[in-house]
Amino acid sequence: MSSKIHADYNGIITKKDLRKVFWRSIPMEHAWNYERMMHSGYCFAMLPVLKKLYPKKEDYIDALKRHMELYNVTPYISTLPLGISVAMEEKRAEDPGNFDTDSISNVKTAFMGPLSGIGDAIYWGTIRIIAMSIGVSLAIKGSILGPILFWLTFNIPNFGIRYIMTFLGYKFGAEVTTKLEASGMMEKVMRAASILGLTVAGALTAEMVYLSIPIQIGMGEETTTIQEILDGIVPGLLPLALFGIVYVIFKKKKCSPIVMMFILMALGIAGAYFGFLG
């Protein structure tokens, strides 16, 4: 589509830039919080690339904001979605007129759930267990090799795969977007990505937003809780309602995020004090 992109185009993002993304991905979970999880870590890792791609200040700020949205993934493979994001941002910066900017968030989101599933199984479920059994079996006899081997067995894959994933993610993202542009399939695939991303976002909302009303009603054997009644109608109604309310409030710009944050925290504490939430 764009005349600027031809077969031997190498991009403006260099190996050095990608290495920077790798180093900056290390504190990914440093500011993890319940509201948007790894958002600031992701943005922190993307920052130098965005600064390079968007010399105009407004574009740069918009790009930073894009990567301040909720994100969560097994930290050890976070460089894979980061690499893909870098490739997509690069394509967008090349040709802002034709690139669907929202697709960057859509693709990121679509990867969030499945990648975490795989990553958690490999790192927490497998590598950690292997490292632990090696470490504990030696350490229980008092050998210093136990802790050392434990740390190395876990961290060589941690940092090694994290490093490789940066380049794989970028290569994958760049190749796929270039091919799609050439074949004219871009629009269709980006639409598919938006559907996939939104489905995963819905699934994650159901998984991570939690509230219940444990207030009891009825007497004797008839005792039941409001939550049980609600679950009997449609499960997950309350978290969905909460999501809907917050969504509408934000959409109408009735309330700033920081005020909303305090409201939700106060609601949690009041709920615990009076016992209407659990």
Partner: peptide, 22 residues
């Protein structure tokens, strides 16, 4: 209360994300 808030706060993160992708 903070535990409960931990379940409520993601609603905000997803609502903000949804502004962008919904």
């Amino acid at each position: 209360g903070m535990d409960i808030a931990g379940g409520l706060l993601p609603a905000m993160g997803f609502a903000m994300l949804a502004q962008m992708i919904m």
